[in-house]
Structure formats: C-alpha cells, structure tokens
Design a binder for these strands. Sequence first.
DNA 1: TATTGACCTTATAGTAGCTTTATAGTTTAA
DNA 2: TTAAACTATAAAGCTACTATAAGGTCAATA
Lengths: 135, 135
Amino acid sequence: MRIGQLAQLVGVETQTIRFYEQQGLLPPPDRQDNGYRVYTEKHGEGLAFIRRCRILGLSLAEIHELQSYQDDPHQPCTAVNALLDDHISHVRSQITALQALEKQLVSLRASCNDEREVEACGVLAGISEGNMHQQ
Amino acid sequence: MRIGQLAQLVGVETQTIRFYEQQGLLPPPDRQDNGYRVYTEKHGEGLAFIRRCRILGLSLAEIHELQSYQDDPHQPCTAVNALLDDHISHVRSQITALQALEKQLVSLRASCNDEREVEACGVLAGISEGNMHQQ
DNA sequence: TATTGACCTTATAGTAGCTTTATAGTTTAA
DNA sequence: TTAAACTATAAAGCTACTATAAGGTCAATA
C-alpha cells in the first residue's frame, strides 16, 4: 500500500502522513526500489489511532505518551486514565472560559444597533472605553 | 514615553509592541536621536484597544478591520456589528463542539478504572477500536 | 575613568499542527 | 510518446506571540 492509498483510507493528506512520520508518531515504513513508501495494515491502524486522538483534542505529545504506554502493555493503566482526566479538565476549563467570553460579547453587542455611524457605535465605544467587566 | 514605560502601562511585553507595529496594528512612533521609539498617549490608547480586542478573542486581522472602520467614522456601523456577530457565532460553535467533545471523553473515561494493565485498558481500547459515536 | 546594570536596537528562531509551495523523479493510461 | 497522476525532499507559511543573540545607549556607581 502506497502513501496515497493509506491517506485515502484514513482520510488524511499524504503530507500529514509524512509529517507524523517525521514527528516520530508513525514508524518509518519500508521503501520500494524507487524510494516510495510501502505501508502495511499496522500502519493503517497506527494512523487511525492518531487521528482519533486528534479528534479527541489530544496533542501530538499526548499521543506520543499514549503510544509509549501501548509499547509496555503490562504496566498499570493509571497513567492513561490520568492523561485523560487531565484532558477532560482542560476541555472543561476551556468551555467555562468561552462561556464567560460569550456573555461579554453578547452584552457588548447589545450596546449597539445597526443604525448608527461608526463614530457613535456602541460596540467600538465599549471596547475603547474598556467597559469590560473581567471574569 | 519609551517602549518599556508603554509596555508597563498597558501590561504587555516590549516585543509585543514592536510586533504589533511590524504587523501594522500600531503606527510607527517617532524616534529619538539614538533610535529609541517615543510614544504618545494616542499610542497608549491604540495599544489598549488592541489588547482589549485580543482578550475578547478577536484575531489580529479582525482588529485590523475594526481599525479601518475607526479611520472612517461616518460610515454606518453595520460592518462592526456584523463582525461581532460573526465572532459570537464562532465562539458559540466552539462551545458546542467542546461540549460534545467533553461528553465523548467522559464516556471514554468511564470505560476504564485504574485497576487494569495497559493491555486491558478500556480507554486505549476505546480509542483503538474507534468506538467514537461522532457528533 | 571604568564599569556595571538597566534599558534600547535589530534580526532570527521557536512554539503547534499542519498546509502550501517549489522542484524534481516515477508510474500509468491514452 | 506524452501527459496526468503519483511520489520524493526541502523549505516556507500560517497565528500570535515569546525567546534568544548580539549589540548600542545611558545613568549611576566605585
């Protein structure tokens, strides 16, 4: 299987696959005589794992960490769970921050209708005067 | 006022001020004979505006756009409000996505306790098997 | 006077996670 | 045979800074 087929199979760009290889997330595959990369099913699974982690918002460093656990399957999985717990609390604090931000933006938006000149725009005035009740 | 004083006044790093100048967000200030930048109160206001926009999550490009409206104060402020509306809906969709993600992560986490080996870890198995009910 | 320290200058690189571009060699179908 | 589609590498671009390097300026101190 060549890189384009693998890319299509998993739904990523070929460059992304090379990028993961370069970052040490995918093992370097064998090469044909012409230098083309040849992938096995294992690579497909590895790549799919990476993509699912990315969809879950894990960083490449965190994925790397998970892979190192996979390479040593007889240790307790406490660390895996801890990584996920950390990530969950990270996501939660992002949500909280964004909700506070949304409130701020909505109240700023409420300070203007569309029927003014820029000079008198409530939104611009609000930002300029710093009427920004912090979180 | 020199760059260090301005930086302290507004609460940013000196490099950030030079960066904004380079990006065209702050007008280039006059220079002393020795080449040091000299800032006025106007610059302080401009920088504070930028920072407040950043705190609201606006991109430098969006800030640039707002500045162009400020430079032409007699047009209607519809575009300003539209920019903010776009930003609000962007923030909202981020929140929605993160909430869906949180759900997914929590259910994944629930599939394992800490008392297993990595080999049997429910979290890793969940990711590997792709039991990821998409949004 | 010499030097120390705090400040300023520019230019360059690093961060995350790719994407884009440039340049070039290879394979395959018409 | 020639063009399309694929592959390769290397390097730059994206965002919004932050950090580092190497050096010039200035005031106070020993």
